[in-house]
Design a protein around this nucleic acid. Structure first.
Length: 807
DNA sequence: TAACAGGCAGTTTTT
DNA sequence: CTGCCTGTTA
């Protein structure tokens, strides 16, 4: 057995010399199960990459190492850093650094033929959320159910949850007892059937089917065991049940395989994560996976990386004190060896506009005062929900501060790109009905809904894919002549691109980018979007032709970089024989499929990459994994953080707290946390309650500053001008434009009802309807507690609430 | 077949 | 107040 501790003197070893003692341990404990609890900012990526490099240097063949991540970005970064350490070439050859989903896709394609998974063909397409939604809509409609009773979104999330829990349609049916879940179960079953008919799987299937395959097939499992001896999983706190299963099966757990010489220490699985940063429970991640790792692997060793190299002591203290309020966690002592630093500032604003101004002030001030000058790119603003970004944008714009929002539809999600891709997907997979339905009349070519309906009926009665049914469109009696000829030329167009499925012949494109270009031009998409752009209606329309050319470039780039040998499922030497089993597919088709898959599994084309010189705005979720010199977190209010939809259980509340924790720990040197006393939610200004998390911050390490009452000078109309007065509800135009600003304007008529409102008065609210006043408070920010007939008791600020007295 | 009005709901997001 | 979906109308 190799003994790394003897063979290398740590202080002279380039892989170890700049590591702390626990970091070294995490690198050197290569054998047996290992849990690395990596606190925020503890140098996690550095440790992982060193560990991989160390393994290889110790003589472990690179191809026997498998590192799994959640995002392509993380995988790419890890791969990059390992190559930097070891250099390109034979040392790193065959090293697999992949996302869970990409690995699963490869394994499923490779083993589909021997895995005996019903309906799964090796050339399956991967459906994303919008594909799933349109398929599901059709399924629901075909079952004569209404999409208003069965909203695709929620049905889909029910199905997704089931798959994350490893519940197949049959398993789900078995435990469905009540009417609701039995209906969901029927839809689930039909949806699965439709997916398989379309030759497709969804994202969740990639995991579920892989887990099932590994579970059922000894042969597949053995193949994987033979190849991968060292498994490493990043962000382990975010794994769901299916991923846990896959990991276990890949390393040979739960039961050691009989007759196999199992190391008494257990498999070489190293998981890295931080329970305090688990913020994806709502999409199936199960924090127990990491919390129970030591139970699942009794021989596991645990290394805690608690030293923080990112934040100042007061910021760390704030994060630490906050997160100690969570029960379900593994405590880590967070510490930094660099003392000093500015205390985080907790400010209270009057309303969201004011809050946004306080943020721009903070950013400007920090930029100037900081001893080493900060650029806008070193700063970020975080919020719980995307809707909070708008006010922030307005304020930044009028302050002349450049900003970028880390969100927005990614390149591959834009309408025109999705349409072009739908064409390509039909070319790659003629059975892909969802894509076909999308493009059959895009741009419009005289095949209307009724015509599509009729062909679809033929398709489902004869059990053939839609495109096949279209070929026999002439047999459909009640199809108009026009539709008939349109359909014929549509089919001819597709056949022209594919050489009727052969991908052979002189007319057929020989390169991927040629094909993409041809499809965009001949489909009429190019002309369509060019015309739209000329019309120049919206900004988005102007960019569309450009995006289509961009797609051609992306295909060209893929073509140049495509390496058919870099397949993580490729097993060197061991199973060359099996590869002969599959009929050879035309090279262009192979490349097209690889291209489409690379797109399907890469969501964030323009990911969170702070543009040069601009402040980054993003949700707290998107902030994970990043760091900024200065951070502002806004909207620390009950209902927002913790979010109103996440207060039903302790588990949810703790996740909200972790979200705040993640936000705080992104900040390196400057941090401002803000709440606002009033906030306009869906057009209605409301009094807010400060987030309970503010109370959980350590008084001695943060500075509090209530700015809400100091605004009188800045806002001549605001604040105490009319606090005692109740604006009467104004009917007609006045009410529609009744923003807080206009209500606050000096209008004597407005104050007439003031004082007339007392406990017992009957009132009407434009949103909540009729209610009875229970109590009234006067003075600053006068408010009334009202018992509404329909929505219960609410406390309303008289200054803002458009209450009218009715008795 | 497309454009438009009206109704309704309204976290977080990767693959 | 928004955006999305549905159903209706020219």
């Amino acid at each position: 057995m190799r003994d790394p501790f003897e063979s290398h003197a740590p202080d002279h070893d380039p892989l170890l010399k700049d590591l702390t003692a626990p970091q070294r341990e995490a690198v050197l404990l290569t054998e047996g199960p290992l849990l690395v609890l990596a606190a925020a900012g503890s140098g996690k990526t550095r440790v992982i990459t060193r560990r991989i490099a160390h393994l290889i240097r110790m003589g472990v063949p690179a191809w026997s190492i498998l590192a799994l991540t959640f995002t392509n970005k993380a995988a790419g970064e890890m791969r990059q850093r390992v190559t930097t350490l070891l250099g390109e070439g034979r040392h790193t050859r065959g090293l697999t650094v992949s996302t869970f989903h990409a690995l699963c896709a490869r394994l499923l394609r490779k083993y589909a033929d021997i895995a005996n998974l019903p309906g799964l063909k090796p050339d399956f397409a991967i459906y994303d959320t919008s594909d799933q939604t349109s398929l599901l809509k059709r399924v629901i409609a075909d079952m004569s159910l209404s999409t208003s009773n069965w909203p695709p979104r929620s049905v889909l999330s029910a199905i997704s949850n089931a798959k994350n829990e490893m519940l197949t349609a049959e398993a789900f049916a078995a435990r469905a007892t009540d009417f609701y879940s039995r209906s969901i179960s029927r839809i689930y079953t039909a949806y699965e059937k439709a997916l398989r008919n379309a030759g497709a799987v969804d994202f969740d299937d990639l995991l579920l089917l892989t887990a099932t395959m590994l579970e059922r097939s000894r042969e597949v499992r053995d193949d994987c065991h033979r190849r991968w001896q060292y498994l490493l999983i990043d962000e382990y706190q975010d794994t769901n049940r299916a991923q846990f299963k896959i990991a276990s099966l890949l390393v040979g757990l739960p039961e050691p395989l009989p007759g196999e010489d199992q190391d008494s220490r257990g498999p070489n699985v190293c998981v890295v994560g931080d329970p305090d940063q688990a913020i994806y429970g709502w999409r199936g991640a199960d924090i127990s996976n990491i919390l129970d790792f030591e139970q699942n692997y009794p021989a596991a060793r645990v290394v805690t990386l608690g030293e923080n190299f990112r934040s100042t002591a007061p910021i760390l203290a704030a994060a630490d004190t906050l997160i100690r309020n969570n029960q379900r966690r593994k405590h880590k002592d967070l510490f930094t060896s660099t003392p000093g630093g500015e205390k985080p500032l907790v400010v209270t604003a009057r309303d969201e506009q004011h809050e946004a101004v306080l943020v721009t002030d903070f950013l400007r001030r920090t930029r100037q005062e900081s001893e080493s000058p900060l650029g806008w790119r070193d700063m970020a603003v975080f919020y719980r929900t995307n809707s909070l970004s708008r006010v922030m944008e307005d304020a930044l714009r009028s302050a002349g501060i450049p900003y970028t929002i880390a969100r927005g539809t990614s390149f591959f999600e834009r309408e025109e790109v999705r349409n072009a891709l739908a064409y390509l997907r039909v070319v790659a997979n003629p059975a892909d009905d969802v894509s076909l339905a999308r493009i059959i009349n895009t741009p419009s070519r005289g095949i209307g809904d009724t015509s599509v309906e009729r062909v679809q009926t033929l398709a489902s009665t004869s059990g053939t894919p839609l495109l096949e049914a279209m070929r026999s469109a002439s047999e459909i009696a009640d199809l108009s002549a026009r539709a008939r000829s349109s359909i014929a030329s549509f089919v001819a167009m597709i056949d022209g691109w594919t050489g009727a499925g052969t991908f052979m012949g002189s007319q057929i494109s020989s390169s991927l980018s040629d094909l993409v270009e041809r499809v965009i031009r001949e489909s009429g998409l190019e002309a369509h979007y060019l015309a739209l752009s000329k019309a120049g209606k919206s900004e988005a329309d102007l960019e569309r032709p450009e995006n289509l050319s961009e797609l051609v470039s992306s295909a060209r780039q893929f073509e140049n970089e495509f390496d058919p040998d870099s397949d993580p499922a490729f097993f060197p030497g061991a199973d060359a024989a099996r590869d002969g089993r599959l009929a050879p597919i035309p090279p262009l088709l192979a490349m097209l499929r690889a291209y489409l898959e690379s797109i399907a599994l890469v969501a964030d084309a323009d990911a969170v990459d702070p543009e040069q010189g601009s402040v980054t705005l993003m949700t707290l979720h998107a902030a994970k994994g990043l760091e900024f010199k200065a951070v502002a977190i806004i909207g620390l209010e009950e209902g927002l953080l913790p979010h109103s939809r996440a207060q039903t259980s302790d588990a949810e509340l703790e996740e909200e707290r972790r979200l705040f924790f993640v936000g705080i720990t992104r900040a390196m040197r400057h941090l401002q946390i803000s709440s606002s006393r009033y906030r306009t939610i869906r057009g209605i200004p409301e009094r807010t309650i400060q987030s309970r998390f503010i109370e959980e911050l350590p008084r001695e390490h943060v500075r509090f500053s209530d700015q809400a009452d100091l605004m009188a000078d800045a806002d001549p109309f605001g604040d105490d001008a009319f606090v005692d007065e109740l604006p009467t509800s104004r009917h007609g135009a006045g009410q529609r434009t009744g923003t807080p600003a206009t209500l606050r304007q000096s209008d004597p008529a407005q104050g007439r009802a003031a004082g007339t409102l007392t406990a017992g008065s009957l009132v009407r609210h434009p949103q909540f309807g009729e209610g009875k006043v229970l109590s009234v408070t006067g003075g600053m920010g006068a408010r009334a507690t009202v018992q509404f007939k329909s929505v219960g008791t609410k406390t309303l600020v008289l200054q803002y609430a458009r209450l009218s007295r009715i008795g």
